[in-house]
């Protein structure tokens, strides 16, 4: 298994992109976009995380098993948050005094 050597240029580009995105997320948060503030913040965070995962953590050049492991981790986290949320989101339908105060 020959190891893939990423050039320094790629690393510096990714670094610059991450800094730019950090600035972007701070600036976007200053504007009131309603729910889209959350959407924008999370989109930027996910993009940054993907950049770190793919380039700094070398997922781009790793085995499928590694990529699958990473995906499984985030997928299971989504299950935990999603199914828990399913309870809270639908609670107010019957018990309005529990949710959303």
């Amino acid at each position: 298994m020959a190891e893939h050597v990423t050039s320094r240029k790629v690393y510096f580009l990714v670094f610059a992109a991450l800094l730019a995105l950090t600035l972007a997320t701070v600036l976007v948060a200053e504007v009131d976009l309603g729910v889209f503030n959350d959407v924008a913040a999370l989109t930027i965070a996910v993009t940054k995380a993907l950049l770190v995962l793919l380039f700094f953590m070398h997922v781009r050049h790793s085995t499928r098993m590694t990529a699958l492991t990473a995906v499984a981790g985030f997928f299971w986290l989504a299950l935990l948050i999603g199914l828990t949320m399913a309870d809270y989101a639908s609670r107010g339908q019957i018990l309005p005094y529990v949710a959303g105060k």
Binding site: T22, T25, V26, A29, E30, V31, D32, L33, N37, D38, A41, L42, I44, A45, K48, A49, V52, L53, F56, M57, H58
Partner: peptide, 28 residues
């Protein structure tokens, strides 16, 4: 080095999510 790097980058990723969720949510 590679293994420690993975760990270090992961800690970075956690912060990448913590920063907007904790700091920026009330900015506007």
């Amino acid at each position: 080095l590679e293994m420690t790097g993975l760990y270090w980058h992961f800690v970075d990723i956690v912060w990448i999510f913590l920063f907007p969720l904790l700091y920026l949510l009330g900015a506007h």
